[in-house]
Computed example of a mutant assay.
Amino acid sequence: MDGNIAETRQRLRDAMPVARRWAYFDHAAVAPVSGPAAAAMQRWVDESVSEGDTMWPEWGRQLKSMRQSAANLIGAATDEIALVPNTTAGINLVAEGLDWRSGDNLVTLGDEYPSNLYPWMHLADRGVETRRVPTADGVVDYDQLADRSDDRTRLITVSWVAFSNGCRRNLDAIAEIAQRKGALLFVDAIQGLGVFPLDVSRTPIDFLAADGHKWLLGPEGAGIAYIRRDRLPLLRATAVGAHSVVHAYDYTHIELKLKQDAARYEGGSLNVPGMFGLGASIDLLQSLGVENVAAAILDATDSICSKLREGGFRVVSPRDGEQRSGIVSFEFPGADLLAVRRHCLEQGVALACRAGRIRVSAHAYNTGEDIDRLMSSLATFTE
């Protein structure tokens, strides 16, 4: 095994208490919280209990640091980052914020997670068409994506990594199509952010959102949205509150003068402990190097695919080059998949069922021993 992979795997494993009991392969659903994230949230609880809101100046500094960490993760500026409760909230900033006109359309993929479909479909009563381009087990036909876009296409919206089978999409190619068609680009990054490199200063993405409770190893209820600085005027703020204005903490000064950065979308109170936890996990992953984390994940999933094929299972996830991700989907013919999952849980192995298949999602800390436990659990399943 490559030395960097082994070191990355062990360093991250040391920070993941869940590994003491579980062979955990369900990061694409809800990941276990990292040790640093748990410690950061516990510090907030202890401070809140003992000090109350006298800690706000320090908490404010920590939130500023967390926002900087999130910006660094994707190569953005801090004023382009909004702190949001989940990916859906980030999607709706764009869906409800753009000045759609009847006859507009947007183009997306046929296998999107529902949260990257319903907000766009909800625009139908404004005369906006949602066009869904089919994929082949997650693989995108970029020519077809371009062909479905026309001069009334306002937006192309895609998941970076397909939730059901793990196909990682070429964001540079999709961004080129969007630019050529004069459309904006939104990326649902939840299944790849933090474990595969992304630089929005190089890949011209207009909007992006991701929750922290999957590959970022943070808690639920804490995520980030990215709005490219020059796109900020395009989005009407739809959830304006006391924190949306430039004089956010002067509560007797009533003047609707919105902040000139992405924080204008943070109208109300934030999930402060959740954001601290997310920030701690982002810092952890960046300390390891996202490239190193990616290499360890692909090493693990390559091994899983090899063993699955040896065991007679058919892997349906695309596994060519940069289409690979941390998600592996495979068929278990004739089996009750929920029963398979229950059996694996009893063996201390966590996985999921999606789209009529078994889905395993390995992180960088999953070891060969974890993979052996997975294969043993599958081999011993009997209905």
Rank of each mutant, 00 (worst) to 15 (best):
G223C: 09
Q10W: 03
M16D: 00
D283G: 10
E47A: 13
G194V: 11
G212N: 06
L308T: 09
Q62F: 03
A124C: 03
R9N: 07
S376I: 02
R319C: 10
D230G: 08
D188I: 09
Y265K: 01
G274D: 09
E129F: 10
G127L: 07
T87W: 05
D250C: 04
D147L: 07
A178S: 07
L98G: 00
V33S: 08
I174T: 07
W44T: 09
R154G: 01
R229V: 01
A37P: 05
R21G: 07
I91P: 02
L278T: 14
T8G: 02
M66E: 12
T157D: 12
F196Q: 07
F381Q: 04
F25C: 01
P57E: 12
F163L: 10
F196V: 12
G241T: 10
S244Q: 07
N105I: 03
G35I: 00
V30Q: 09
M55S: 13
A280K: 12
L338S: 13
D26R: 13
Q10F: 04
T153A: 11
Q323M: 14
L351Q: 03
R126L: 13
I177T: 01
A31Y: 00
K307T: 00
N271L: 10
L63R: 08
V84N: 04
L256Q: 14
I297R: 13
T367Y: 05
N116H: 08
Y142R: 13
M1Q: 15
A70D: 01
G52K: 01
W160H: 11
T203G: 00
A295T: 13
L73K: 02
T8W: 05
L155N: 06
Q68W: 09
E176S: 12
I5V: 12
V158C: 09
V245C: 05
A225Y: 01
V128E: 10
G35F: 01
T157C: 12
N170G: 05
F313E: 11
C353S: 10
I282M: 15
D26W: 05
A209Q: 05
R11K: 15
R169W: 13
V187W: 05
P273I: 12
A237V: 14
A237C: 15
M66G: 06
W22G: 01
S115W: 13
V315Y: 02
D188W: 09
Q68I: 09
V360P: 00
T54G: 13
C353H: 07
S115M: 15
D302N: 14
Y251W: 14
E7N: 14
D99K: 12
G221T: 05
R236E: 14
A362N: 02
V245Q: 03
